[in-house]
Structure formats: C-alpha cells, structure tokens
Design a protein around this nucleic acid. Structure first.
Lengths: 151, 151
DNA sequence: CTGCGTGCAAATGATTTGCATACAC
DNA sequence: GTGTATGCAAATCATTTGCACGCAG
C-alpha cells in the first residue's frame, strides 16, 4: 500500500536526480491522500499547510518528474487540469474510473476484463497495446438518490 | 455516411439557432475530413483556405454548439486540446481509439464488448453509466516496423 | 426589424520557462 | 564546490468572454 521509498531512492540515484525536501513533501501528500486524484493546485494547497512555501512551478515540475519515473500516474478527467495518483506497480490490476456527471466525483472500479478486449484489438488491428485508459460517465449512487427526490 | 442536413436544420429550428454561413462552412470541414479528429485550430485552418475570414472564437463557439446538438462529438486525446468528430448517430457502435505513442496518429476500433463491462459495473457499484470513453495506447503497425528497423 | 451571431481584442486559467539564488550530493 | 533544484515573475497556449456591429429569420 505504502510507497516503496527504497525503490524511489534508487530510481533517483540512477537518473542523478536529487531527493529534495520539496520532492519528499509532495510525495507525502500523495501518501496522505491515497485514491484522491490530486491536481497540481490540490497538491500545492496540501503542501502549503503541512509546511513552508513550495512554488507552484516546483509542484508542476515535480509531478512531471514523478510521472516520468512511474511513481505517479498522470491522468485526465476532462476537467481542464491534469490529475495524478500513486502508481501502484505492485498491483497489476487496472482500475477504471467512474466519473459522476452530477457531482464530478471520481470513483474507481477494479477490473481485468479489458485484457480480453486488448487481445482482440491487437489481433484485428495489428496495434501493440501498451496501456489503456477507460472512463465511464454516469451518475453515482448519491446523485441518483438526489435526482429521484428532485424529480 | 454523410451528415443528415435535414435533421440538423430541424434541430436548429427547434432551438432557434441560426444556420449561418460560418456554421455551414465549419460543418463542411468535418464532412470533407471524415475520421480525422480535428482540433479548433485545425478547423480554423481548413476553413480559412476554403473561404474568407472566420474568427477563431467563432470556431470555438460553433464547435461547442454542435457538440451540444450531438452533431459533433468532443473528445480528448490528452494532447492539450479538444478534438471533434462527426457524431454518427446512425451507428450505435461505440468505437474506441487506438493512440500511437510514436506517431500520435489515432485509429479507431469498432466494438461493443464494453456493454458487458458496463452491466457488471452498474451492478457492482450502483453507478448508472451514461457513456464511456476508452483509449488504448500503444504502437501502430507502421511504427512497429520502423522500430524493428532502428533497433 | 430584432435578437442572435460574429469578429476582434482583451481576459482567463492551466501549465511552462528564464533566470538568479540556494542546497543536495 | 558544482551542477541540479527552487522560487518568482513573466511567457505561453488553449479557450472564453465583452462588446459593438452585422445579418438570418
């Protein structure tokens, strides 16, 4: 569940990156906010509370860096900003995102069914699939109830 | 294959929208560039060649309008700009996008398998699914060949 | 006519970048 | 020490918006 700090430290050494306090703090923010899909702004806000000043530009640069190192995964829910989450390399389970059209909350759904589809596509299209991203749009349980009331 | 102009004209009348030359021309751009996933800039460029000046702001407003009317479908391939394609309402087939990580070209893949997955999700998560978007990232046939050569 | 549509320029919002300073290794 | 990181402010890029004018119905 937790991040493998040893692994991360190693990746940093390999690439000659420095493990600065800012980078640690930003990483911490993700550990403290598991499964929350934080945006750069979100991270910046969180980080400012915990500690001193970290420039927004640094947050962006750090998020980019962690994405390259596969520590974080950059994702896009179509709300005009990039969001990030910890990349759990230990769990090969791809999870899909259920995006509520009403309250915009994002839930996750564990599933491996897509592997089948990938095989079909690879075969039919001669397209080598490396990764996929699936988003389902609809209405979450809470918003469905609200809708029933207001209708 | 072609757009149903009668249908579109009707939608416009219903909503009291005007079918201006600009709007026609922009629509034409999509007819002339089927399956090409045009961005606002793309449309603007295309349109400028064919005819006189159409402001970029107008292009944006028009694309937004057509999306609302379900004439176009707005999509996001993560390249920092929205892209649009004609919404073929006649074909209920959802097609998925295969995005090449090497040449960035986007191919399409027809498939209905996801309906199964939607049912599973709805049942397990109490999430009412309205729509989905699936993107597969990988390497297209051409780029695979190039890779073999350069490796 | 009349209000919706357009073009232009200016505003916005997320993200990036240049540069002088600061600090991890 | 030395080159990478950081913070700040300015730059960039896609998209949006305000406003006076133009034209489709």
């Amino acid at each position: 569940m937790a991040i493998d700090m040893v692994d991360i430290r190693q990746k940093f050494q390999e690439k000659q990156y420095k493990l600065t306090p800012q980078r640690r703090i930003i990483l911490e923010a993700f550990v403290d906010h598991q499964d929350e899909h934080l945006s750069a702004e979100d991270v910046h806000t969180i980080v400012r509370q915990h500690s001193s000043e970290i420039g927004l530009a640094t947050v962006y640069r750090t998020l980019e860096l962690f994405s390259e190192l596969d520590v974080l995964q950059k994702m896009d829910f179509g709300d005009g900003r990039s969001r990030y989450e910890i990349n759990e390399k230990t769990t090969p389970h791809h999870h899909h995102h259920l995006i509520c059209l009403s309250c915009s909350k994002v839930k996750e759904f564990e599933d491996d069914l897509l592997e089948t589809l990938e095989t079909v596509i690879s075969r039919k299209s001669n397209f080598t699939i490396v990764d996929h991203q699936v988003k389902f749009y609809g209405y979450c349980e809470e918003c469905q109830k609200k809708r029933e009331i207001s209708d």
